[in-house]
């Protein structure tokens, strides 16, 4: 659906996007992550034809984003950052305008208007002026605007930016439902959202792609993933040496707890699980064991690991 090859954008001497490449196939929900100023919005603006790339190329639905910009724009529904809308229009009037700009007319336009208003939960405010709506409703109008012509590809720039938790939930479930028959590329800072909704993540920083994979693979392959914490009773020194000898274990640290137990943190190689061996060892040595847990990493840790500057 989207093929990006070596896409770059310079603002004067500053390279906002520096030769990024990634692919999105049909039906995927892809999260586009990065710290502020990483080049997310610039990339999305290039894909939607608002800004031309300095170099490189990208194709959407088989059309070149620069040479066949109009064809590309027919295939996408784009919700820009901060959702700019004509605030002195009414909701339904605005959506009718945007729908007819995308080539809908007559009964088809009326049908899509009704459907989109329903999907986005806007039916009861359809006669209101957009300027009187709250931020959450404006966000939904923006989403309805992107959806009205049933595009193959939805590009959403920070769709939940500035919403309260309930509204974020509503938008998230909306996106999940849409993901069933749309390809979605969404940029965001909210990592829990990506973990819940996306089946692929592209992380960029300083204009470069740092990682592109499924959230699960990213978490498993990170350096600190798979850390195991165990609470045991017994001789501390001995336990530490014995634990270090278990296969795949790279390092063991310990920390006494208040009630006479000790907590051991066992660092292991990525993509391995040594819990069974540890419990077997504890059983064999007759160390009382009350807790054994593998800390799975979070996407947040992956993100920090990839984009931290220190």
């Amino acid at each position: 659906m989207i093929e990006v090859a070596n896409l770059s954008k310079n603002y004067g001497r500053h390279a906002a996007v520096d030769g990024i490449s990634f692919e999105v196939s049909r039906g995927e929900i892809v999260g586009f992550l990065g710290p502020n100023g990483a080049g997310k919005t610039t990339t999305l603006r290039m894909l939607t034809g608002f800004l031309p790339p300095t170099s490189g190329a990208a194709r959407i639905a088989g059309h070149d984003i620069f040479r066949e910009s109009l064809d590309v724009r027919r295939h996408i529904g784009y919700m820009p950052e901060n959702v700019p809308l004509y605030t002195d229009m009414r909701v339904k009037e605005y959506l009718r305008f945007r729908g007819s700009l995308r080539g809908l007319k007559g009964s088809q336009l009326r049908k899509r208007l009704g459907e989109t208003l329903d999907i986005c939960g806007l039916s009861h405010v359809r006669r209101k002026m957009i300027k009187t709506l709250s931020k959450g409703y404006r966000q939904r109008v923006g989403l309805a605007d992107a959806l009205i012509h049933e595009p193959d590809l939805l590009i959403l720039d920070e769709p939940t930016n500035g919403l309260d938790p309930n509204q974020i939930r509503a938008i998230r479930s909306l996106i999940q439902n849409l993901g069933e028959n749309h390809t979605i590329l969404l940029s965001t800072h909210i990592l829990s959202e990506v973990e819940m909704t996306c089946n692929k993540v592209v992380i960029i920083d300083e204009g470069k792609v740092k990682a592109a994979d499924t959230p699960k693979n990213l978490v498993n392959s990170m350096r600190r993933a798979g850390r195991i914490s165990a609470e045991l009773q017994g001789p501390r020194e001995e336990i530490e040496t014995k634990l270090s000898a278990v296969g795949d274990v790279t390092k063991v640290t310990s920390q006494p707890l208040q009630d006479g137990w000790n907590r051991y943190t066992v660092f292991v190689a990525p993509n391995t699980d040594t819990r069974l061996r540890i419990s077997a060892l504890a059983h064999e040595m007759q160390w009382p064991l009350r807790s054994l847990a593998r800390r799975s990493g979070t996407l947040e840790e992956v993100f920090v690991e990839l984009t931290r500057r220190d």
Binding site: R45, T48, G49, F50, L70, R73, R74, I76, Y78, P80, N82, P84, L85, Y86, T87, R98, L101, R102, G103, D145
Partner: peptide, 14 residues
Amino acid sequence: RSGTLEGLLTAPVK
């Protein structure tokens, strides 16, 4: 100013 130009020019209009 309001940014609606972005929405307008990313719709299929010349």
